[in-house]
């Protein structure tokens, strides 16, 4: 009897593992995102779903390109390393296309232009732009273009955080002098906390967000680029900007 149960169990497991292989019409794609980056990707408080600009975009692209996407929430530094090691098929996470990243992963055509912006406490009248950050402690998220910009400022001390929310929290607590992050994000946080935070100076870099694709999957990149071109033609990007970045 025991043996019978065991063999039914084993056959069941085998069946389950075989079944998904039978019905593969659309391409299954695992997409990584670091959902701590509002309004591009974050976990909605009420529904507990991952939502945002990037999520709407990748869903639209998937519809156009016939991809069956699964969105995986990972922290930023494992996301970068995971993409370089092809642990995920693709990633959409407000990722700036950089030369260094291009060496280890593929990038879609750019879909959004952003730049770095300095955020400080509302009462800070000393820091007026990026030039005043020498000798100051400046926070940024680990491995982001913002953290690379802090490293370029002579005399500035970089403090890296797991996610940008922690850096902003530390800034609100007054334990660091400024945070450097992408402008939509800085705007989002200063709007939400307009009594505590403000941005200073102008956007001082110009960079482009792209969808990164694992290096061994150029055919996936092609499909994503095609889908991206179609949704761009339909004017979706402008719609999304209105929806997520209006203020």
């Amino acid at each position: 009897m025991k043996k019978l149960i065991l063999s039914i169990f084993i056959v069941g497991i085998l069946l389950i593992s075989v079944l998904p292989g039978c019905s593969q019409e659309t391409l299954k794609v695992r997409i990584a995102t670091d959902a701590t980056w509002p309004p591009f990707e974050y976990v909605d408080e009420a529904t507990m779903d991952i939502v945002g600009f990037d999520i709407d975009l990748i869903k639209a692209i998937a519809d156009e390109a016939g991809l069956d996407i699964e969105i995986i929430n990972v922290a930023w530094d494992p996301l970068l390393a995971g993409m370089a090691q092809c642990q995920y098929d693709a990633a959409i996470s407000a990722m700036t296309i950089t030369v260094e990243r291009k060496e280890v992963m593929l990038f879609s055509n750019p879909y959004f232009e952003a730049g770095q912006l300095v955020t400080v406490q509302i009462g800070n009248n000393e820091i007026k732009s990026k030039e005043d950050l020498g000798g100051k402690t400046v926070g940024a998220q680990i491995g982001t273009t913002g953290s690379f910009e802090v490293e370029k400022i002579p005399g500035a001390v970089l403090k890296t955080y797991d996610d940008i929310g922690l850096a902003m929290q530390d800034l609100i607590n007054g334990q660091i002098d400024a945070v450097i992050s992408d402008n939509p994000l800085a705007m989002g946080y200063t709007n939400e906390n307009s009594d505590k935070l403000k941005t200073v100076g102008a956007v001082f870099t110009s960079e482009y967000y792209g969808i990164s694709v694992c290096k061994t999957k150029p055919e996936l990149l092609e499909r994503i680029n095609e889908g991206l071109a179609k949704v761009k033609d339909e004017g979706l990007i402008d719609e999304l900007i209105l929806k997520w970045l209006a203020n």
Partner: peptide
């Protein structure tokens, strides 16, 4: 945000993959 051995490792990985 303490730059200990683990954090330095993560920072290195985030740049060098």
């Amino acid at each position: 945000a303490v730059a200990d051995l683990t954090r330095r490792g993560r920072e290195f990985m985030a740049v060098n993959f």
